[in-house]
């Protein structure tokens, strides 16, 4: 990025490097949330509806995993994707794909745990009805997920917030490569280390604005969808 520019200048002048960074941040975190939703929502729903020995322990574990330290996830994914690691042949280390994998692992427990709670609450409400209708477990899960869809958006947003805000995992597996794997958070870390604290703060405000915008968009979509659904 050009020197002696504030973050506001970069936004106002439409700095292409800044926009590439913003685009990558959103693409990586959005992809991770999408993948995490595909994995986490069914997992949460399955735990909500089933009873098995050790279920309480599983729920405690799942809830605890919401607090997985990003730097540890980053390190584990780094070691797995390294050319000396088990998945080295994929050649994904220091790529945006590696960042998506790390953030997916980070976000899946959050979405699964929140989905489990939401769906379990709904299940208590629907249990008699769904039992009387004698529908199979798959159908039950589908019904509950569909009816909980507006509440589940909050779970996805929590996941997105976590993914967009973290720096520990993406900086290790992505390498903070200029123009390739540099995200908002790794750029902030870099500008801080260069001693350009005003630019770092400015980029931080841009990141916060993006997260607010994504949440506002989700809120508007939810309201519109609720109105359509009656």
């Amino acid at each position: 990025m050009p020197e002696h520019l504030s973050a506001l200048d970069l936004v106002l002048t439409g700095d292409p490097a800044l926009f590439a960074i913003v685009r990558l941040s959103i693409a990586v975190s959005f992809s991770a949330v999408l993948l995490a939703a595909v994995l986490g929502v069914p997992l949460g729903a399955a735990i909500a509806l089933s009873s098995f020995p050790g279920r309480d322990a599983a729920i405690v574990m799942l809830n605890a995993m919401m607090g997985l330290p990003p730097v540890v996830i980053g390190l584990v994914v780094y070691l797995a994707l390294s050319h000396s690691g088990p998945l080295g042949a994929w050649g994904l280390l220091f790529t945006p794909q590696a960042m998506v994998i790390a953030q997916t692992i980070l976000v899946t427990p959050i979405i699964a745990a929140l989905a489990r709670q939401t769906i379990e609450d709904l299940w208590l409400e629907y249990r008699d009805e769904l039992t009387a209708m004698e529908v199979g477990p798959m159908r039950r899960i589908a019904t509950l997920v569909w009816d909980a869809r507006f509440s589940l958006i909050t779970a996805l947003l929590a996941g997105f917030g976590r993914a967009a805000a973290e720096v520990g995992a993406v900086i290790i597996v992505g390498g903070n490569i200029d123009g390739f794997t540099r995200t908002m958070t790794t750029a902030i870390a870099l500008e801080t280390s260069k001693g350009d604290l005003p630019l770092a703060i400015g980029l931080g405000l841009v990141l916060i604005a993006i997260v607010v915008a994504v949440n506002a968009l989700a809120w508007a979509l939810r309201r519109a969808a609720e109105r359509l659904a009656g």
Partner: peptide, 9 residues
Amino acid sequence: LGFVLPAAA
């Protein structure tokens, strides 16, 4: 997802 992200290799 490859289409939203730059090529890996």
